[in-house]
């Protein structure tokens, strides 16, 4: 089966609100996302207006997550007043194209906190073991 063209096959209405969002394209247990622009009130299984990039959330053998962004077209759609969904805004923030999204900071902070808690738990267990022996 040939892939649909990157220019998209969805119907286009000039005045309807657009949004740039992740659209899941992988299969079961293997997520893969297209970054696409589509109408805001359209569900993700419907044809999109244009594909703007891709995002592979599973790290490859070099422990890298690959993101492709067609920055020229993203700028065009942003200029046309397209909205950005939060996951896409996070990716654009990490890439240095937009300021870093607050949710990225939140995730980082929460991850650091859980790590700290896990460490503290481990140390407490060790201390218990040494005390009992």
């Amino acid at each position: 089966m040939s892939l649909p063209p990157a220019s998209g096959t969805g119907r286009y209405f000039a005045k309807a609100a657009k949004s740039i969002r992740l659209i899941r394209q992988g299969c079961t247990n293997r997520p893969f996302f297209h970054i696409s622009v589509t109408h805001r009130r359209r569900i993700n299984s419907q044809p999109v207006i244009e594909q703007l990039g891709s995002y592979d959330p599973m790290p490859n053998i070099n422990n890298e997550k690959l993101v492709a962004l067609n920055l020229e077209r993203i700028k065009y759609w942003l200029g046309n007043g397209a909205h950005i969904s939060t996951p896409v805004a996070e990716l654009l923030g990490l890439s240095g194209f937009l300021p870093i999204h607050p949710r990225s900071y939140m995730t980082a902070w929460r991850n650091r906190r859980t790590e700290r808690e896990n460490l503290a738990k481990l140390e407490a267990e060790k201390a218990k073991e040494t005390a009992s022996t």
């Binding site: 990039g53 790290p59 070099n62 890298e64 997550k65 690959l66 993101v67 962004l69 990716l91």
Partner: peptide
């Protein structure tokens, strides 16, 4: 993991 961003313009 690292994130790698490629501009595919």
């Amino acid at each position: 993991a690292k994130y790698i961003f490629t501009d595919i313009t």
